[in-house]
Computed example of a mutant assay.
Amino acid sequence: MSEVLVIGGGIIGLLTAKELMTAGAEVTLVEMGQTGRESSWAGGGILSPLYPWQSPDAVTLLASWSQKVYPGLTTELLDTTGVDPELTKSGMLILDSAERDLARGWSERFGQPLEILDRGRLHQIEPELGLAPECALRFPEIRQLRTPRLSKAVRRYLEKRIQLREREEVLELLIDGDRAIGVRTPKGRIEAEQTIVCAGAWTAKLLEQLDNKPEIKPVRGQMILFYGKPGQISHITLRDSHYAIPRRDGRVLFGSTIEHAGFSKSTTAEDKEALYRNAVDLFPVLKRTPIEDHWAGLRPGSPSGIPYIGPYPGISGLYFNAGHYRNGLVTGPASARLIADLALDHTPILDPSPYALNAPR
């Protein structure tokens, strides 16, 4: 019997398995497809909520803890696996400055450095920027990483340390009275003392057999990738809820849409064109830059974006860590540590009450 079973191999499930294993647990992870191929692969990798002062404190606390541990985590992964998640401190520019007083108050409260830039300084640090506002916000300490590389690194780290079962769909949770005892898949039963559901947008579907399930729904997001040159764009840049993310190799991600389209991951020509128009308006240099790719992913949407992290009420041995919406990467390490603390009866790193199934959202 496995000590802990993790359902879901996105970045939340992978990091949860890593935390449990590091704490000494025997871990099995089961994933219906390939690990790290859903929202973990499709996301941009900004290690901050997009407009951080608009986030609930419950999200900010997870993000702040994670931001502190990411340098050590990515160094450990590179040293042990040879895969570089490309953690990069590019800083984040926000060109919507109507809420700058709120942003300033938030930065002072949570200790996140913030600069107010005038138009001259803005063009100095981002000369390829199009029509710039009179002032902008800059969070200089914000980092980003390559999401597929992070998932690949964590998977490689885990593959010889835990039991990893890919392409195996969980058909049913096994509940004996008031206790979870494992799951049933097409290959049979997997029994475990504790089961942690980290199934992202599919979490609510998996918990349908129970009376009470988290409010998690798929929210589609489309992105385009430009094949740019290194140095053209330096900062993560936000405007009107869209963002440009420059990679080390010069590629530039631009996103993203917010669509309620069920579990469809199809892309549309209309959204590709809209994203392109916004991108070249923000950075005109992208007009001369070919589009390399266009894709869609499914975010695990939840009310207010506060994830569900904790035990399932009334059923011992059953836990969940899901519903991170747009902030799975930036809150992932803290979420994984918190659920591991709760499942293993350790002192939790944060007050878990805001993330409980029945907590107000």
Rank of each mutant, 00 (worst) to 15 (best):
Q112A: 07
R109T: 13
L131N: 12
G111S: 07
S107I: 15
R121T: 14
S107V: 14
Q112G: 00
D118T: 13
R167K: 09
F110R: 12
R138W: 12
L129Y: 05
V170T: 13
Q124I: 04
Q112R: 13
R121K: 14
P140R: 11
E169V: 14
V154H: 07
S151C: 15
R156M: 12
R146L: 08
E168L: 14
Q163F: 01
I162A: 01
R146W: 11
E128D: 10
A132R: 03
R155D: 01
E172F: 06
L173R: 09
A153M: 10
R146D: 11
E166G: 13
D118I: 13
E166M: 14
P140D: 08
I162Y: 00
Q124W: 11
L171I: 03
Q112V: 14
I125W: 06
D118A: 05
F110Y: 15
D118M: 04
L164A: 04
L131M: 07
V154D: 06
R104C: 00
G111R: 08
E169P: 01
A132H: 02
G111N: 08
Y157L: 12
R155H: 08
C135L: 05
E159L: 02
R109M: 05
S151D: 12
R149G: 01
R165Y: 02
E126F: 09
L131P: 02
Y157N: 12
R119H: 10
S151M: 03
P140Y: 03
L114E: 06
V170S: 01
R104D: 02
R121N: 06
D118Q: 04
R143M: 14
I162S: 02
P133W: 00
E169F: 02
L164V: 11
G130Q: 09
S151V: 13
R121M: 12
I125S: 05
I142W: 00
V154N: 07
K152G: 07
I142Q: 00
R149S: 15
P140L: 11
A103K: 03
G130S: 11
E141L: 09
W106Q: 08
H123G: 07
Q124D: 14
C135H: 10
F139A: 03
Q163K: 10
W106Y: 13
P113W: 04
A153G: 09
S107R: 10
E126Q: 14
R104T: 03
L150I: 07
D118E: 10
I125V: 12
G130R: 04
R149A: 15
G120W: 00
L164E: 05
T147L: 01
L137N: 06
R165G: 00
L171S: 07
Q163A: 07
R121W: 01
R156N: 06
L171H: 05
E141V: 06
F110E: 08
R146I: 06
R138G: 02
I125H: 02
F139M: 12
L158I: 09
P148F: 04
R121S: 01
L158F: 06
C135V: 04
E108N: 09
G130F: 01
P148Y: 02
R119E: 14
L131F: 03
